[in-house]
């Protein structure tokens, strides 16, 4: 029963974007699509946002818009712009994405807590406005999605409910009789996981053990986002002095059928997104760039 927006509706949405989705009353020509050059450097590609190697890339400051193409809309962006740099070493490509955020939000435990995040969307060269809306059936979009909550899980251990509710009390969690505050994941044998339905069902968001802070995703239209079978994206985010600086990396060559494969010298379509937890951003409530161009140095 899914019903995607028709072309007419998409154009109406885009028109709405022009009038509504800017942080200040600015003219449409003020907002430029990204132009990103991935500079070639020797291996290894840095994962640390503060590594020297990033200076070799050219920084591009890109304006962000709201999102008014798929429900629910976000009329104004949370952040005015992102600064993007890109490097590749012939094997992997990396993006350093930076934006201003007065408050880091790395926890999504409470019902009204949302995490900070950023994303890179990759599409083949020639992709246009329609593909920009999270890909199409014919042209899947590849996404790298950095998540502050996964970053924290990795660095400080799984952030369970006690981090938000230190005074919680509960007699016991079945079937773990006599265990006070069992810890995930080691305190939960396989037969106990039924009581954690997301985990039991294999939802990647519910797996307490994280190996990377970056999800590698594919979408073929709004609402179809899924994790790709091979989760080999890496990266790291650091918040300092009111700014997030996040590295997102993936191998150039696609590991999965629907993933975008990159080659040195190639040109692709790219867009960026930012989620500000303090603004209750999540899913479609995101600040996005127009679809622009990514070129890999040969």
């Amino acid at each position: 029963m899914t019903r995607k927006l028709s072309r007419r509706e998409a154009l109406v949405g885009l028109a709405a974007l022009g009038t509504l989705a800017l942080p200040t009353p600015a003219r449409a020509q003020d907002v430029q699509p990204p132009e990103v050059l991935a500079v070639r450097v020797p291996s290894p590609l840095p994962v640390d946002p503060e590594a020297e190697a990033w200076r070799r890339a050219r920084a591009a400051e890109i304006r962000l818009l709201g999102q008014a193409m798929a429900y629910p809309f976000k009329m104004r962006p949370s952040v005015p712009s992102v600064r993007v740099r890109s490097l590749h070493d012939g094997e992997r490509i990396g993006f350093l994405v930076e934006w201003r955020d007065p408050r880091p939000d790395w926890r999504a435990v409470k019902a009204r807590e949302f995490k900070d995040g950023c994303g890179v969307m990759l599409l083949p060269r020639g992709a246009g406005a329609t593909e920009w809306m999270m890909g199409t059936l014919k042209t899947p979009a590849t996404m790298l999605h950095w998540r502050a909550d996964w970053q924290r899980d990795l660095e400080a251990g799984f952030q369970d409910l006690e981090t938000a509710f230190p005074n919680v009390a509960f007699d016991f969690y079945p079937p773990l009789v006599g265990v006070d505050r069992p810890k995930l994941p080691d305190g939960y044998p396989a037969d106990a996981r039924e009581w954690l339905p997301g985990w039991y069902a294999g939802n990647p968001l519910s797996q307490p053990r994280k190996t990377t802070p970056i999800e590698k995703l594919v979408a073929q239209g709004a609402g179809t986002l899924e994790q790709l079978p091979t989760q080999n994206a890496t990266g790291r985010g650091v918040w300092k002095d009111g700014r997030w600086r996040v590295v997102l990396r993936k191998p150039l060559r696609a590991a999965d059928a629907k993933e975008v494969s990159l080659v040195p010298g190639g040109t692709y379509a790219v867009a960026f997104a930012v989620w500000q937890g303090a603004h209750e951003d999540r899913g479609a409530r995101k600040s996005i760039t127009l679809l622009g161009r990514l070129r890999l140095e040969a």
């Binding site: 369970d160 509710f165 339905p197 939802n203 968001l205 519910s206």
Partner: peptide, 11 residues
């Protein structure tokens, strides 16, 4: 509908 604090999805 309720958000699960541990699995981070809703139920």
């Amino acid at each position: 509908v309720f958000y699960n604090h541990t699995t981070r999805v809703s139920e």
